[in-house]
Design a protein around this nucleic acid. Structure first.
Length: 492
RNA sequence: GGCGAUGUGGCCAAGUGGUAAGGCAGAGGUCUGCAAAACCUUUAUUCGCCGGUUCGAAUCCGGCCAUCGCCUCCA
C-alpha cells in the first residue's frame, strides 16, 4: 500500500514519492516566539508530528526542520504595522532576545508536554542573516528584486508563476490591497526581502543596503533549502499561511533558476473556540498552559496535554477543529478507556504463563494493524485510525473478559500493537501509563485498604466492604472488582 | 468583492459511486452481594435544501441556503 497525500500545490491527492529514495526532508513553519503557544499551534505541530512519525514508521529516514522565528516582522505589504517581538519586549521591559528566549523555552515545554517529538533541526531566523542577505543579493542580480531606500523588494511581475499555490492573480491582488502607506514598492503585491531599520528598531543587522532586518518570508526559503536542499519533499504549515507567506517563499526560491522549491505542500486547518474564530485579538485564545492547568475561562477544567493531543488527532488535520468543553470531555473519557485497557494488559503480562502468542491473537492484531496502516496511508487519516484503535480495544477487552487465559506472549503482542500504533505513530499511549499521582507509596496504601475490604467481602460483611469503597470514592479513588482481584483508579 | 473550505444521529467525527466507522451521551441486557468497569443489543431508511447523471450517490454535476477561513501579523 502506498502513501497518498493531499498536495495543496496541485489540489489533488497524490501518491507520495520522495526526492531521494528512502529519505524525506520536511520543513514546517514554526512559531514566532513572542507569546505562549496556544491550541492553534498545538493542532499544527501535533498534526505534523504524527506525519513525521508515520513517515518514519513507513521506513523513511526523515529530516524534520522547523524554524523558530525570532526576528520580528512588520506586515509584509506595508511599511507600517507592529513588530510583535519588539512590542512584547517593551511591555516586559526586557531585551527582544530575552523575549525570544523566554517564549522559545515556553514553546518547547508545551510541545514536549503534548508528546511532540523535537524537530531534527530548529533553526532560528536570527542565526541565518548572512544566508538571507545572500539570497536577496542573488535575487537582485537576477533581476527579481530591487533596492529602494535601503530596503529590498521582490518584484512579483518577474515571476510568472506567482499565485500558483494560492490561486491568486497579481492584477486582482491590486484591488484588494488596503491603504498603501508609502509607494516605495513598484507593485502593491511586491514584498520585502530586506527592510531598512527605522530609528529605534532594536533588532538590526548590517547589510549591503545599510542596517536593517530581513523580510518575513525569506527566512523559510533560506533555512529550508540550506538543510534540505532544493527541491525537498514536504513543506507544511497552517493554511492561513498559504497566502502570502508560502506563495512568497515559492517565488523567492524558484525565480532564480526555476527549480522547484518543495514537491508537496501540506496544510493543516484552523482551530475555532465554541464555533468562533480564535484570535489573539479576539480575546478567546486558549493558550496551552492555561488549558493544561485549568485556568482558562473558556474551559471548565484542566485537560491533560495527552487529552488535547488525542482530541486534535480525532479529526483530520485538514478539517477545522472546534474546541469546546463538551468535546474535550468526551475526548478525555474516550482516551481514558483506551488507557485503562492498555494498563490492564500490561499489569497482566507479568502474571501470565509463559508461552508464545496464540495464532488467533496474532491474526487479530495483524488485521487491525493492516487497517490502521491503510487509513494512515490515505493522507494521514488519524481520525479513522483512532477508530481502529477502539475496535482493537473492544477485541482486547473481550479477550480479557473471556475464559481463555492469555499467555504472556499474547499479552505482549497486544501491548506491542498498542505501542506501535498508539504510541510510536499517534503518540497517545505512553509507555508508562500509571495512576497519575500514583507511585509505590499510594499503591501500597491502597493495597492495605483493598486487602481489608477483600477480607470483609469473604466474610460477607458488605457494610464494611461498601464503607471502604464509598469513602475512597469520595476521595476520588474508584475500586473495581475484577475476577482476578480488585484494582484502584484515580478519577479527576 | 476575490479565493478556498465545510454542512453526516443529542454532541464530536470518519466515510469521494455500491447501500452510513469510531468516541461521548441515552435505553435494555450479561457479569456483580450491590456497584464500577467491561462486553452484548439498541439509538440516522438517512447524510443542509432542490433538481440532474447513474442499475445504484452522503459520495459526481447544477442551483440555492447556512457556517467558517484566507485576502492584514497570526499555526
Amino acid at each position: 500500500m502506498a502513501l497518498y497525500v493531499q498536495n495543496s500545490l496541485t489540489r489533488q491527492k497524490e501518491i507520495f514519492t520522495s526526492v531521494k529514495e528512502g529519505f524525506v526532508g520536511i520543513y514546517v513553519c514554526g512559531p514566532t516566539v513572542y507569546g505562549h503557544s496556544h491550541i492553534g499551534h498545538a493542532k499544527s505541530y501535533v498534526s505534523f508530528d504524527v506525519i513525521v512519525r508515520y513517515l518514519r514508521y513507513s521506513g523513511y529516514k526523515v529530516r524534520y526542520v522547523q524554524n523558530i522565528t525570532d526576528v520580528g516582522h512588520l506586515t509584509d505589504n506595508a511599511d507600517s504595522g507592529e513588530d510583535k517581538i519588539l512590542k512584547q519586549a517593551r511591555k516586559e521591559r526586557i531585551e527582544p532576545m530575552e523575549v525570544v528566549e523566554l517564549y522559545t523555552h515556553s514553546y518547547f515545554e508545551d510541545m514536549d508536554a503534548l508528546n511532540v517529538l523535537r524537530p531534527d533541526i530548529s533553526p532560528r531566523a536570527s542565526g541565518h542573516i548572512p544566508e538571507q542577505i545572500a539570497l536577496t543579493e542573488k535575487l537582485i542580480e537576477t533581476g527579481h528584486a530591487y533596492v529602494e531606500n535601503g530596503s529590498v523588494y521582490f518584484d512579483v511581475s518577474s515571476f510568472d508563476e506567482y499565485g500558483k499555490l494560492s490561486g491568486r492573480k497579481i492584477d486582482e491582488l491590486e484591488e484588494g490591497v488596503r491603504v498603501e502607506v508609502k509607494s516605495e514598492k513598484r507593485h502593491p503585491a511586491d514584498f520585502a526581502l530586506w527592510k531598512q531599520a527605522e530609528e529605534g528598531h532594536l533588532m538590526r543587522w548590517q547589510s549591503p543596503w545599510g542596517e536593517g532586518y530581513p523580510g518575513w518570508h525569506i527566512e523559510c526559503s533560506v533555512m529550508a533549502t540550506k538543510y534540505l536542499g532544493q527541491p525537498f519533499d514536504i513543506h507544511g504549515g497552517g493554511l492561513e499561511n498559504i497566502f502570502p507567506h508560502h506563495e512568497c517563499e515559492i517565488a523567492q526560491s524558484e525565480a532564480i533558476d526555476g527549480s522547484q522549491f518543495a514537491k508537496y505542500w501540506l496544510h493543516n486547518n484552523m482551530v475555532t473556540v465554541n464555533g468562533m474564530k480564535m484570535g489573539k485579538s479576539l480575546g478567546n485564545a486558549i493558550d496551552l498552559k492555561s488549558a493544561f492547568n485549568g485556568t482558562n475561562k473558556n474551559l471548565s477544567k484542566a485537560y491533560s496535554p495527552l487529552v488535547i493531543r488525542f482530541f486534535i488527532l480525532s479529526s483530520h488535520y485538514r478539517s477545522p477543529l472546534d474546541f469546546s468543553d463538551e468535546a474535550l470531555q468526551a475526548a478525555e473519557k474516550g482516551l481514558a478507556r483506551l488507557h485503562a485497557t492498555v494498563k490492564l494488559v500490561r499489569d497482566q503480562i507479568g502474571k501470565a504463563h509463559e508461552e508464545k502468542a496464540s495464532i488467533g491473537v496474532q491474526n487479530t492484531l495483524l488485521k487491525y494493524r493492516r487497517e490502521f496502516v491503510g487509513l494512515m496511508d490515505d493522507d494521514f487519516n488519524t481520525a479513522a485510525a483512532i477508530g481502529i484503535l477502539f475496535d482493537l480495544n473492544k477485541s482486547v477487552n473481550t479477550l480479557l473478559n473471556s475464559n481463555e487465559i492469555l499467555s504472556s506472549g499474547s499479552l505482549q503482542a497486544i501491548d506491542e500493537t498498542y505501542q506501535t500504533l498508539g504510541e510510536d505513530i499517534l503518540g497517545i499511549i505512553p509507555k508508562d501509563i500509571v495512576n497519575e499521582a500514583g507511585g509505590d507509596l499510594l499503591d501500597g496504601l491502597f493495597g492495605v485498604l483493598i486487602t481489608l475490604r477483600t477480607d470483609a467481602r469473604t466474610k460477607r460483611d458488605w457494610a464494611t466492604a461498601d464503607k471502604i469503597r464509598d469513602q475512597l470514592s469520595e476521595l476520588g479513588v474508584i475500586l473495581e472488582d475484577r475476577p482476578d482481584g480488585t484494582i484502584w483508579k484515580l478519577v479527576k
